[in-house]
């Protein structure tokens, strides 16, 4: 399953990158992402919760930054298991930053997710239907968080 989208952020590319490479800040932009803590060696553990209609799903995941190339690219590998459900989730997430103006950055997000087990069999269609919605909301949260952080810094 591949999901991608982009958003324009009114902030210089370096500020957006500083924010995005901070896993604890970035994960605050992901709806339902809680209990983020560092495991060491650039790895983090987190709990992801999603509510889709009457279905509530939770995943225990580890997040590892697999590629960080300032000022354009941040990639992460996310792997984990659902709580109370047989299955596995494995995802590659990437952010690409491009300057779009004097103090504007175009951020493109891409997510490749594979689901296995019961999760893949019954949950796949629902995930596919909602993944783009979740991705777009992440992008909006990222934009809002970066822009408000920039306002805080302003003299």
């Amino acid at each position: 399953m591949h999901v991608e989208g982009n958003i324009l952020i009114h902030a210089p590319q370096s500020d957006v990158f500083d924010f995005a490479e901070n896993v604890e800040l970035l994960t605050q932009c992901i709806e339902g992402c809680r209990n983020v803590h560092e495991l060491g060696d650039g790895k983090y553990a987190a709990l992801l919760e999603a509510q889709i209609a009457f279905l509530r799903m939770a995943f225990k995941v580890t997040v590892e930054l697999s590629r960080v190339e300032r000022p354009n690219t941040i990639e992460a590998h996310i792997a984990g298991t659902p709580v109370n459900l047989v299955g596995k989730i494995d995802a590659r997430a990437g952010l690409t930053l491009e300057p779009a103006g004097p103090a504007e950055t175009r951020v493109t997000y891409a997510l490749d997710v594979s689901l296995a087990g019961k999760l893949g069999g019954m949950g796949e269609s629902v995930f596919r239907a909602k993944a783009k919605e979740y991705g777009d909301r992440f992008a909006v949260h990222l934009r809002d968080a970066v822009e408000s952080k920039l306002l805080e810094k302003a003299p």
């Binding site: 509510q51 209609a53 009457f54 279905l55 509530r56 799903m57 659902p82 109370n84 459900l85 047989v86 019961k118 999760l119 069999g121 019954m122 949950g123």
Partner: peptide
């Protein structure tokens, strides 16, 4: 509470419950 659901025949809901997708 979205996890309170009516059930009639249950043919769809039971599959989801067995799979652990719906609790």
């Amino acid at each position: 509470d979205p996890s309170v659901r009516p059930v009639a025949g249950g043919t769809a809901l039971m599959l989801m419950m067995k799979a652990g997708l719906f609790q």
